[in-house]
């Protein structure tokens, strides 16, 4: 992540050219991600005029946080933002708490119907939400979950859980069984071995799964729109409100949708890179 400037400019050696290739690749990838975010930010912060200004100035001019703050102060924005965070939090917590044990079982144990179970897990995604929407709404009203963030979180968990189970299965399979067995031999119970050996080694993968669940929930708009009226998530809220808003409001909304994901991923980036390289060989 940190920019290194160690090019000694030695003439056309193989090392320097491959280093050049590496850094230009990194630059291209960064641009791929950063330029759109930058443009959105420019639109959001540039005020009413900034949005329509063309050609864009490379450096931001006339930038101020005021339009964005104005947007934040708009009725409902902050609340829906918090709602979204809540739903995403529920989704992350439940899909890891339920999905990781399922993935561990799939990775470590042989049981009858394992393959059909795996298929069944994926089958939950076979029914489009659009078909389920009406019956879901009815039952949610009956259960008192309609128009609640818990309800939305539960539905998002259903969406994220199959992937959580299958992805964590792959992660746990990547932790060699012998490591666990060695822990048992040297005095661990199964539970201790899991927390001392398996969990630390699986952590990067589990964090990646959490990011994935977070993003699924954060971006989901259909179920959130159908199942809420007043307690909207940010996506659902923006969908209904923004079509009638001025351009820079839309950009502000966009920025607000992007930022939490970016910040979240940035916060957990440490765990996303396998620090020790899982290998027993």
């Amino acid at each position: 992540m940190s920019a290194q400037t160690t090019s000694k400019a030695s003439p056309a050696s193989f090392v320097s050219s491959s280093r050049w290739l590496l850094w230009s690749g990194i630059a291209a990838l960064c641009a791929w991600v950063l330029v759109p975010i930058y443009l959105v930010a420019l639109g959001a912060l540039g005020g009413r005029q900034g949005v329509y200004q063309w050609p864009k100035t490379g450096l931001p001019t006339g930038i101020s946080l005021d339009p964005f703050i104005l947007f934040l102060k708009t009725e409902g924005v902050l609340q829906s933002f918090l709602n979204s965070l809540g739903a995403a939090g529920i989704t992350v917590a439940l899909s890891i708490l339920l999905g990781a044990p399922a993935g561990y079982a799939l990775a470590r144990y042989n049981f009858h119907g394992k393959d059909s179970y795996r298929l069944l897990v994926l089958l939950t995604r076979a029914f489009p939400l659009a078909i389920l929407a009406l019956p879901l709404t009815v039952s949610f009203i009956r259960l008192g979950l309609y128009d609640t963030i818990i309800g939305v979180g539960l539905i998002h968990t259903v969406l994220a859980l199959p992937f959580a189970a299958l992805v964590t299965q792959g992660i746990f399979m990547g932790v060699p069984r012998e490591l666990e067995e060695a822990a048992w031999v040297f005095g661990c119970t199964r539970v201790q071995a899991f927390f001392k050996i398996v969990a630390p080694l699986a952590l990067p993968g589990i964090v990646a799964t959490a990011v994935f669940a977070f993003v699924i929930s954060w971006n989901e708009v259909f179920a959130a729109s159908v199942l809420t009226v007043r307690n909207r998530t940010l996506t659902a809220y923006l969908l209904t409100v923004l079509s009638e808003s001025p351009m820079h409001y839309r950009f502000a909304g966009g920025l607000m949708l992007i930022l939490p994901s970016v910040i979240f991923i940035f916060a957990v980036r440490r765990y996303l890179f396998a620090i020790w390289g899982i290998s027993s060989k």
Partner: peptide
């Protein structure tokens, strides 16, 4: 269970813990 058998084992494919230093491995 293995831990109640009072033995130690050297595994064919080593099974050293990759997230611990050599010291912590030996001390485990």
């Amino acid at each position: 269970p293995p831990k109640e058998r009072g033995l130690a084992m050297v595994f064919q494919n080593y099974a050293v813990f990759p997230h611990m230093t050599v010291y912590e491995n030996v001390a485990f």
